[in-house]
Design a protein around this nucleic acid. Structure first.
Length: 606
RNA sequence: GGGACUGUAGUUCAACCGGUUAGAGCACCGCCCUGUCACGGCGGAAGUUGCGGGUUCGAAUCCCGUCAGUCCCGCCA
């Protein structure tokens, strides 16, 4: 149907007879000569229609409208020297049309402009309802190609490293822990259900037991939880697992993978190795396990200084096992008014939204004088004050914001405050202009986390992470006691405050696996029932193994400079988990339900 | 489940403290135009102000409800 891509032609092609296909991006009708910008995925080129030449081409050109689909037979020629378009890659030439075939027309009003010249922000609802048109536009077209390039680079890299791509089931069994499952009723086995995988975690471990040694997959994952800008009910992981390897080898290999992607997509050589923080250090200095290290504003622990203070908010927090921490904001005295950091203020609200009781502050004045409420000032000794200023690096003009309470809440509150202030103070470049890529490995996560609501330990990553061998000790009899406080051989890759992926070495010893499952409150019989197949596999010659999974949607989002992963997915769902294009989810015929042995209890509120 | 924001012509936006005929750019339609490239000129059409109710002499504007989209909390790794 065509001999060339519109965007591929150059001056060297002058004189060549070509056939092009594409969409009318724009038409300029001069009454005599008519210009058509013809667009296909390779780019656009100007097609010129001369009234004196071509067989019926001019009559056809007069009827053309935006987004008509054309096939054009013509000849490439140099443009007149005074009519070059430097902004167009094909701007030195044009195609003189001889025949115009209209392959399809536009029969109803376009919901929004598709042209490359129209970059108006269209309401997302409309974009999603007519996603095929949105995909025709430069932005989404580019994002999908960027996504393709990212995944292709990963495939080539892993291929060269000896990885084998294996597909794992989408219909699998539901397991406890983690997110809510999407369920699929079994017609053949009435009353029983498949679950869509939250990740291929167990299958990739079984592939290691299966002797694949190096596996990867571009895997679709499903989680039935509420959506966010960076969370969709179905999303894509670059999933991998390897045998006979150490954590160091896994991290090094993945740094290579990420560097290859950034090189291919952005042309950037990332400095390696990536910096590392232990989980404990990240929590202490940033209050989060995925710190944005593009800027400072670190949290400073001053619990020891105020432990004996007469100010009960501080000393009480320390006495009950919590902490008092500070963010020092250079120039904060001028930047942040009292109204904003006192009750009702936006900065105050950031802290209280995270569960903090409040946000104490000290303004540091000339000569090291401090300006704050009496209860704090009167209860701070001269040496205490000196140490506070020294440790926070405070100078005149610095604003100190305090979080006091149980450590988790303090961390959470100050993390929020830190992030919002960084944005406001211009410490991070917003949007597409962002060219700082601060990768960070967070290592040595704890195995477990206490769930206060359910009053039990939960696996921080998942219950198949191998514990740190030093923390565990050599004596299996002591495992039950030592496991709850042990660190895991687990790691996350963080970029500019977003978690890109994570993984761990896995347990390959069945006894240890049973012990871990019991630690999270799964009785032995239940563990066998749910995970017996894994435990059995571990007993049949499972090699030491470990791996990692990246969130591809997020990686592409960051590479594309987008704020939502919806802009990296061809057909995403809305926050209400609907597809505006197809209308899914939708009702089904009652016969379908009967066949599946399913009855709906849904009652329409109307 | 909760909080916040948004919804006006095909589209992107405007419309002051509630005020009489709801405006503009682009797109669209018609006419003109042989070198434009976001072509240009003249003219035109286009509105259930998301939907329902209420307050008022009068509602795009205020109130209640509802639907949809977005951001966030909870949830989720």
């Amino acid at each position: 149907m065509r001999s060339h891509g519109c965007g591929d032609l150059r001056s060297a092609d002058a004189g060549r007879s070509v056939q092009l296909c594409g969409w009318v991006d724009r038409r300029r009708d001069h009454g005599g000569v008519i210009f058509i910008d013809l667009r296909d995925r390779s780019g656009t080129i100007q097609v010129t229609v001369d009234p004196d030449r071509g067989d019926g081409a001019f009559a056809a050109a007069e009827q053309l409208r935006s987004e008509y689909v054309l096939q054009i037979q013509g000849t490439v020629r140099q443009r007149p020297s005074d009519s070059l378009n430097e902004r167009l890659a094909t701007g030195e030439i044009e195609v003189l049309a001889e025949t115009i075939t209209v392959l399809n027309t536009v029969k109803r009003t376009l919901p929004f402009a598709v042209s490359v010249h129209d970059d108006e922000n269209v309401r997302e609802e409309l974009r999603l309802r007519h996603r095929y048109l949105d995909l025709r536009r430069e932005r989404m077209n580019g994002n999908l190609r960027l996504r393709h390039k990212t995944i292709q680079t990963a495939r080539h890299f892993l291929e060269a490293e000896g990885f084998i791509e294996v597909e794992t089931p989408v219909l699998t069994r539901s397991t406890p822990e983690g997110a809510r499952d999407y369920l699929v009723p079994s017609r053949v086995n009435g009353g029983e259900w498949f679950a869509l995988p939250q990740s291929p975690q167990l299958f990739k471990q079984l592939l290691m037991v299966g002797g694949l040694e190096r596996y990867y997959q571009v895997a679709r994952c499903f989680r039935d939880e509420d959506l966010r800008a960076d969370r969709q009910p179905e999303f894509t992981q670059l999933d991998m697992e390897m045998s006979f390897t150490t954590q160091e080898q896994i991290l090094a290999l993945n740094e290579g993978l990420i560097a290859a992607i950034w090189k291919a997509v952005k042309g950037i050589e990332l400095p390696r190795p990536f910096p590392r923080l232990t989980w404990a250090e990240a929590m202490e200095r940033y209050g989060t396990d995925r710190p944005d290290t593009r800027y400072g504003l670190e949290l400073v622990n001053v619990s020891d200084i105020v432990a004996t203070s007469g100010f009960k908010v501080f000393s009480g927090a320390v006495a009950s096992g919590g902490a008092v921490k500070v963010i020092a904001i250079p120039g904060g005295n001028d930047a942040l008014s009292n109204v904003r950091i006192k009750p009702g203020g936006d900065v105050f609200s950031e802290a209280t939204t995270a569960g903090a009781g409040g946000l104490a502050f000290i303004r540091v004045r000339e000569g090291g004088e401090i300006d704050t409420i009496g209860a704090i000032k009167d209860n701070l000794s001269e040496t205490g004050k000196a140490e506070l200023l020294r440790r926070t690096g405070a100078v005149p003009g610095t604003l100190l914001l305090f979080g006091a309470g149980d450590t988790a809440t303090v961390n959470k509150a100050l993390d929020r405050v830190r992030q919002s202030l960084a944005k406001e103070l211009g410490l991070v470049a917003e949007g597409r202009a962002n060219d700082a890529w601060n990768f960070l490995w967070v290592v040595d996560f704890p195995m477990f986390e206490f769930n206060a609501g359910e009053h039990r330990l939960e696996a921080l990553h998942h219950p198949f992470c191998a514990p740190n061998t030093d923390d565990l000790g050599a004596d299996p009899a002591a495992w039950a006691e030592r496991l709850p406080g042990a660190r895991a051989q687990a790691y996350d890759l963080v970029l500019n405050g977003l978690e890109l992926g994570g993984g761990s070495l896995r347990i390959h010893d069945s006894a240890l696996q049973r012990q871990v499952l019991q630690t999270i409150g799964l009785p032995l019989e239940e563990a066998e029932r749910q995970f017996g197949f894994l435990i059995e596999a571990l007993d049949l010659g499972a090699p030491p193994h470990g791996g990692l999974a990246f969130g591809m949607d997020r990686i592409v989002m960051l590479l594309a400079g987008e704020d939502s992963i919806r802009d990296t997915i061809a057909f995403p769902k809305t926050q209400q988990a609907r597809c505006l294009l197809t209308g899914a989810p939708a009702g089904v015929a009652t016969g379908q339900l009967e066949e599946l042995h399913v009855a709906s209890t849904w009652v329409d509120p109307q």
